[in-house]
């Protein structure tokens, strides 16, 4: 988004136009939902509902930030859910012994890091496109779990569920939300001030150009996966500690929701763009859908359709606004306009 604002003409209208980013539209949409809920179902604003929504939001967001980094480098990770399932089982083994949260969460982060690193290696060293490489490793991770664990791990001690059951700030706010807040702020600062984050965008924008400016593209890509891994580890820990039992399929399929949150947040799947704040808004909207529908009396049967519709609407709005913006601002020969318009679309 930094780039977009640079491109804007520095006239009077520029300032207002600058505000009309994807994040702005998302914020308006989010406020609209919240206001509508206030009118249609005031019950929705009970402490409990809010905290339930926030807890789901917290682990969705933590993992989505990792996914966002990967997507910025123009890769994608469909193994995220499988990695979190592996994390959940591993930490359940550790937690069964009565180990405290810092211990098994650290183990979870290491497991996430290693598995995600393997994905990064496949993609960079063997030059396998990310979507198929992670598709293949998903099958390995998902298939291996039931061989190691027969059934589920249950009767986990109180030290394991402490995070979900007891750890509350001011007696109400789940600790997982604090984790999410710290991680989000940390990554917002990181994306803004670190030099490495500039490399992420550069690699995502144009690999070859990045190579020419002396960036080690493979290293940046692997690092994106390596950073995402521990985030999956934390998210997996929050999911697993939600109850006294951990099953082998706890987070399978969750990657679709992560990708949806990132895309809804305005990150282009083509790479090179996307802000953490967008992902925050995207994740928050997605975590509201099911409970909000339940409160206004709609069956949750429709929640998938609503989620798909919102994602589609969001990308369509974003696309139309960029398409029209381009037509207005650039006054150059026709051929160039059509070329730039088409190159911004279908991306390989």
């Amino acid at each position: 988004m930094e780039q977009t604002s640079l491109r804007q003409a520095p006239d009077g209208k520029g300032k207002f136009k600058k505000m009309l980013t994807t994040e702005f539209y998302l914020l308006v949409f989010l406020v609209a939902i919240l206001v509508m809920m206030r009118i249609a179902a005031p019950d929705f604003y009970s402490l409990n509902t809010i905290m339930t929504v926030l807890n789901y939001f917290s682990y969705l967001l933590i993992a989505a930030i990792g996914m966002n980094l990967i997507i910025i480098t123009s890769n994608i990770d469909v193994a995220a859910g499988a990695i979190m399932s592996v994390v959940a089982i591993v930490i359940a083994f550790v937690g069964k012994t009565g180990a405290p949260l810092p211990v098994f969460m650290a183990v979870g982060m290491v497991v996430g890091l290693v598995l995600s690193w393997v994905n990064g290696l496949f993609i960079t060293k063997l030059k396998i496109p990310a979507i198929v490489a992670t598709l293949a490793t998903t099958q390995l991770f998902v298939g291996a779990l039931p061989l190691v664990v027969e059934g589920s791990i249950y009767d986990l001690p109180a030290s394991f569920t402490w995070l979900a059951f007891r750890a509350k700030l001011f007696g109400a706010l789940p600790a997982s939300v604090v984790f999410a807040a710290v991680i989000t702020v940390g990554f917002m600062l990181f994306m803004r001030y670190s030099r490495f984050s500039k490399k992420l965008y550069a690699v995502g924008n144009n690999k070859y150009a990045a190579t020419l400016t002396g960036i080690n593209v493979n290293k940046v890509m692997i690092l994106a996966f390596v950073i995402a891994g521990p985030l999956y580890g934390i998210a997996g820990t929050i999911i697993a500690t939600g109850g006294q039992r951990v099953t082998t399929t706890m987070a399978n399929g969750f990657e679709m929701t992560l990708i949806a949150a990132v895309v809804l947040g305005g990150t282009s799947i083509a790479g090179g763009s996307g802000k953490i704040i967008g992902t925050v808004l995207g994740a928050f909207i997605l975590s509201l859908i099911t409970p909000a529908m339940n409160y206004i009396g709609m069956s949750s049967d429709w929640s998938d359709a609503v989620m798909g519709g919102i994602i589609l609407l969001a990308v369509v709005v974003a696309s139309i606004s960029t398409l029209t913006k381009k037509k207005k601002t650039i006054v150059v020969p026709d051929a160039v306009v059509s070329a730039s318009a088409s190159s911004s679309g279908e991306v390989k």
Binding site: I259, I269, D304, V315, S319, I320, A341, E346, V347
Partner: peptide, 14 residues
Amino acid sequence: LKINALITTLATFF
């Protein structure tokens, strides 16, 4: 609308 095929069909998958 020139939206990436992966995203479009991910949304329509849901």
